[in-house]
């Protein structure tokens, strides 16, 4: 026993504080000021993470911003160039066409994937599928497949000469389909990414649907609501926060598109230009072109674009009262 503990219940102030705390549903909400010693302990628990965060995220970002303000030349060395690198990035048609392409990709891929994921999460949740548990496990498997391997498999499958899907298309009378042609390469990548991520999104939506209270659904049934109204009118609104969060996470992921197009470009050089997505632009500017300062500026711009989109969507949701 340690009589010096300040948080000990009994004497009025500490006791009242602890009772007030116990009455709160969520411990971390509405905290009261506690002993200084505890504050020091609490802070020290977070120190390792915060130090790592500063060293491996904040310092590199700051250093990249610093680097983006300089230019290195073979002759003359490194010199301060102000916003020149940003001017060059923002004025680069290659960079912007990559941004536009990833936005188009995101606008198609994310809704299609979320609709498929929500559809299956719903029918599994309702018990409309025999062996739903087995299906859920199968759907989730691609999450465990590295994107590099997924892209290699799909590249073989869709390959223009010997790919089995290409052959099937020919046998079915579609003629010579080239999935790596400039028209079809984006849809092909969309299919690959849908294959990779639908299961993960489905599991999250399924878990969210499972938490919809049973009596809410039962009373809707008693009111004679048809199934599609129960799904769209009762369940969908209740899992809306989960959907919005998935929309948000998938958008951040989509704008970083890199691995799949890079691997596809190994199979068919002509299908994917070196600046096909902003991430490829950064990679090829730095590693291929050796223009690290310019690449740093592009990385900062890409980061800002993504943060801007994320923040805008957060503010939008907040204005609609979906997020506190």
């Amino acid at each position: 026993m340690n009589p010096s503990r300040t948080a000990r219940p009994g004497p009025a102030p500490a006791g009242a504080e602890s009772a007030a705390r116990q009455a709160l549903p969520r411990p971390q909400i509405g905290r009261t000021r506690r002993g200084r010693r505890e504050g020091v302990h609490g802070a020290s628990f977070t120190v390792p993470f915060m130090v790592a965060l500063v060293l491996f995220m904040i310092v590199p970002l700051a250093y990249a911003i610093y680097n983006s303000l300089y230019t290195s030349r073979l002759i003359g060395g490194t010199s301060f160039s102000g916003l020149d690198n940003y001017r060059q990035t923002l004025g680069s048609g290659d960079f912007w066409s990559g941004v536009v392409r990833t936005v188009v990709y995101a606008v198609i891929q994310i809704p299609v994937m979320l609709v498929i994921a929500f559809f299956f999460a719903t029918i599994f949740d309702l018990g409309l599928v025999k062996g739903g548990r087995v299906f859920r496990t199968i759907f989730f498997i691609p999450f465990a497949v590295p994107a590099v391997v997924g892209a290699v498999m799909w590249s073989f499958i869709l390959e223009p000469q010997f790919g089995p899907v290409t052959r099937l298309a020919k046998a079915l009378g579609f003629g010579e389909v080239n999935f790596f042609s400039s028209n079809l390469v984006l849809p092909s990548i969309i299919v690959i990414v849908i294959w990779e991520w639908t299961g993960y999104n489905m599991v999250i939506l399924y878990t969210a649907l499972k938490s919809v209270p049973r009596d809410v659904v039962e009373s809707a049934i008693l009111d004679g609501a048809p199934l599609h109204r129960i799904i769209l009118g009762v369940k969908l609104p209740m899992v809306r926060p989960a959907i919005v969060m998935l929309l948000f996470l998938n958008t951040i992921g989509a704008l970083q598109l890199f691995t799949e197009p890079l691997i596809l470009s190994y199979f068919q050089n002509s299908a994917i230009s070196i600046n096909w997505t902003p991430a490829l632009y950064i990679y090829n500017t730095a590693v291929g072109g050796g223009q690290y300062n310019l690449a740093a500026a592009a990385a900062v711009v890409l980061g800002l674009v993504i943060v801007a989109i994320s923040t805008a969507s957060l503010l939008f949701r907040r204005s609609k009262g979906e997020v506190s």
Binding site: R33, R34, G39, G42, A43, I252, I306, T311
Partner: peptide, 25 residues
């Protein structure tokens, strides 16, 4: 489990890091 000076600010900083794309870092 702890309320210490700046805990909310630090947590907000950690969550802001969620927004930073891996590609950009």
């Amino acid at each position: 489990c702890f309320d210490f000076r700046g805990s909310r600010a630090l947590f907000s900083l950690a969550m802001a890091a969620l927004l930073v794309p891996i590609t950009a870092i």
